[in-house]
Design a protein around this nucleic acid. Sequence first.
DNA 1: TTGAAAGCGTTACCAA
DNA 2: TTGGTAACGCTTTCAA
Lengths: 333, 333
Amino acid sequence: MADIARLAGVHVSTVSRALAGNPLVESTQREKILKIAQDRGYVPNTAAANLRLRRTQTLSVVIPLHHEAGQALTDPFFVSMLGHLADEITQRGYGMYLKKVLPPATNWLQGLVQSHRADGVIVIGQSTEHAAIEAVSKTYPPLVVWGGHLQQQSYCTVGSDNVGGARAAVEHLIQSGRKRIVFMGDSNIPEMRLRQDGYRLALAQASRSATADVQIPSHMTADAAYEAMRAYIREGEKFDAVFAATDVIAISAIRALAASGLSVPKDVAVVGFDDIPMSAYTNPPLTTVRQDLQRGAKILVDLVLRRIDGEDTPSATMPAELIVRESSGARRK
Amino acid sequence: MADIARLAGVHVSTVSRALAGNPLVESTQREKILKIAQDRGYVPNTAAANLRLRRTQTLSVVIPLHHEAGQALTDPFFVSMLGHLADEITQRGYGMYLKKVLPPATNWLQGLVQSHRADGVIVIGQSTEHAAIEAVSKTYPPLVVWGGHLQQQSYCTVGSDNVGGARAAVEHLIQSGRKRIVFMGDSNIPEMRLRQDGYRLALAQASRSATADVQIPSHMTADAAYEAMRAYIREGEKFDAVFAATDVIAISAIRALAASGLSVPKDVAVVGFDDIPMSAYTNPPLTTVRQDLQRGAKILVDLVLRRIDGEDTPSATMPAELIVRESSGARRK
DNA sequence: TTGAAAGCGTTACCAA
DNA sequence: TTGGTAACGCTTTCAA
């Protein structure tokens, strides 16, 4: 900026004003300065401006993968969410700072916040980090979390109606005449836990004994789910349906069932959760519960920005819609 | 940091040294300072440190979408690449600043570079921005581009062997007895252009008249490709195979063919390019040319970092492997 | 081993 | 309308 000032024969403060569009600078002067800056491709140093302005025009997006180190950022769910967030954040004139947090990191969120890298933080998925998030949110308002809305929580979440969506999925299986419905998922992850709750609710309402159903704790990776399903089949348990807490798990289950010589949906019906793009193309196409991630991303960004402005926004829950395809064995509507 | 210094009863410079692990500070002193910082969850303000150190420990990832405004960051190819880049960049101890650039932006790259937001820049896809990239690269070394390697270019690219991969794909179609092979893609995008070159090469080598083949200029969005294919079918042209420049186009083409009552692969064989995750699950599963994005991401990051260190790295081309599935009508090997 | 002070490149306040 | 100057929060050189 000092260069530009010298070339234009004015003081740096005038250059700063001109570049910021401050109407005080005389128009001829402004034109001249802008032209020089333009020609030299000059753009103010953001680090310096950030320091002075105490804002960054950037939002951090964090993905904690505490529960499963091997889970790469290639997981279709995360990756779709990221794409939508990038779209939305860009559109609002902000930049996006992406951070993946691995297991042993202590103080990961506190550290990110204190580094002042961004004006606000979006956390995708609580993972097993509920406590850490809760703690930070007490003193740092511009924080919004994609995930399950828990009873005791005081931070702001955006998420789908996990209980209701899961319930609809399991009711669909029950109505299709399935008798022994297995849940696959990891109850330690809040969102999955809520889906499990929905599953149990649906069974209870149908006066179905929960004993007829079996839990398969599963990590979120495709391979872990595949192995878990195969092992479960090998144990010789009888079941005719699977409700998986995510599509990635469901798709792995389908693979495992096929590999074990079981037909989907004839022998075993499968329903997932998420409606990742791939789900429409699996064989057979996957019945699942759709989360509207584009809308979710929009709400997430909207809420952080409002929180940056000092507003105290409540959590938001979006409806989750059952999408009936062929893997659940029902006739398409 | 002033707070910490006051609490510890030392000067800020000592705190700075302690936090930076400078061995000069006396160990008891250091422990004390670190403990106070720990307790208060203190982390240095990055903007200030960056300003002073003239580096950011951040890499920018830019996605120019000049050629197709509607193309969201939800495109499976971009999104997979992003995931891998996030993994790789995080692993190297850097942060990732993600920027999506839309059509009218002039000087987008120059601006990003000058803003000093990151220590290096990775551009995903040249789009129609070859000239802009070329210009900036002259004066800004730590810039690496994912895309096609062009003759006249002086910047550093990483990409697959587009010509070779496309050629293998088309040869596969020829060997399967297909006679009239249509190329779908947009020749204005360097990578697609190279794939088209490979397509032509394969035809030429088989002494096939290029007149028997037809170009369908297509934007990259799924819908545009779908419409283009439907329109082409309506024109009544005869063809028995499609080589699409991307899987997204190929999958749309399959949908369009099915909607027009044509069977894949019986009536028309389809081959794509990219091997996005979804391709293994389409109906029928898509024959395509695989790009190893994980390895690509690794190389991209590796090269930028070496360039940040002042090295002048050459471009890298990775082999592209034909994956034969069912959409091309050949028997699986 | 620690303290003092300069400086990174901006922006904003106060004077002129 | 413009110029000078302080301040943003840190790191590092130089002195002590």
